[in-house]
Design a protein around this nucleic acid. Structure first.
Lengths: 194, 194
DNA sequence: CATTTATGTCAGTCTTGTTGACATATCTCA
DNA sequence: TGAGATATGTCAACAAGACTGACATAAATG
């Protein structure tokens, strides 16, 4: 078998072994000056685990194509916002143009993304998905959407709005308007938002 | 200036340029067989942006120490669960022991994490934070906790519970009990959970 | 005592991020 | 028109952090 994370009989350890008790045994309240509030370890760790599983689904599919997460992100945002320029993509992904270029080039060469020259500004490269690219992007969004759908079905559809609001509030305040616009602009009405 | 993501005057592009309209202009409903439900693009993208900002805070601090995210994760879980063994850590992080070993070795060499041999099973290596490691772990948890605190303060403290439940539901079903136990076992009562 | 388990380690590869330096085409403004 | 700014492309080198495969050791277990 592979050496990845051992045999992994049980997913996550119980952390309930004899030895564990003899250890320093967990972070007590600590010397928090006075008013210091303890961090929300539960939400911090839930975010970690939720995200870990959230990206695991696409990873499996991407591997079939020889792509990685970087390709996924590019494909996703181009699919959602056809006509996106390089600069806009860079601002969304927060990577260097060299990093972007490597994966973008692969996606273009392999026929998942197409480039056109902007008409009003011919320096721009307008990115769109080819039918293949669109299909892959939607397959990826499909598995992620399915996880969200299942989560809401199990934990209650009423959680949809609170979850959205919490996640938005977790975003850097100055970015929130832009993110909101970006998300809102994904629908059939697109990003026409002057 | 650096070449990272251009000058970035505005954080995220408006995606509202002339050219964008001439583009294919956004994924319409599409030919979803019939009952196919559209993925929750809003939650999918919010999770992406929220996580991006969520890890950006620690990243800045870690850079001061010459550490990366991998070190953070190890330090975090060892701090929260002193006495953790290598195998348990591997199951939490889902990486190979070779990957873990590289960062763990650095953390040990530089005096942030200590190892002891298990008493009941002397094959185990029980990991704990040194005072320095504990300080760093808590500084990192501090900035992440502060983001959570601020989010809840701004969007409403009532969101805490729904957000938790949503995130837990996003986790792979078989993992949820283990994650719940792990999270619950982080307090002063530790993971004593037989 | 043979086997399994927990850990450590060497060596090589891949993806994805980084810097720095330049090149080219196009737009904008004086 | 011509200078400078802007959008993009590209070369080269490097680093972090993941992976695989192979093998070594110590300790527990039946």
């Amino acid at each position: 078998m592979t050496q990845a994370a051992r045999t992994r009989p049980a997913p996550i350890p119980d952390a309930a072994n004899e030895d564990l008790r003899e250890a320093g045994d967990a972070p007590s309240p600590m010397d928090q000056g006075d008013a210091a509030e303890a961090p929300s370890y539960d939400l911090i760790e839930l975010l970690f685990f939720a995200y870990r599983d959230f990206v695991a689904d696409p990873d499996r599919i991407l591997a079939e194509y020889g792509f990685g997460r970087a390709h996924h992100r590019v494909l996703h945002f181009v699919d959602r916002h056809p006509g996106l320029t390089i600069a806009e993509l860079l601002d969304i992904l927060r990577i260097t143009k060299q990093s972007l270029n490597r994966v973008l080039k692969e996606l273009i060469e392999q026929g998942y993304i197409a480039q056109r020259t902007g008409t009003s500004d011919r320096r721009h490269r307008l990115l769109t998905c080819t039918p293949d690219g669109r299909a892959l992007a939607q397959r990826l969004a499909g598995v992620q959407g399915e996880r969200v759908r299942r989560a809401l079905a199990e934990a209650g559809p009423a959680l949809r709005d609170p979850a959205s609001r919490f996640l938005l509030a977790m975003i850097e305040p100055e970015e929130r308007p832009a993110v909101s616009r970006l998300i809102a602009g994904g629908g059939p009405d697109s990003k026409v938002k002057p």
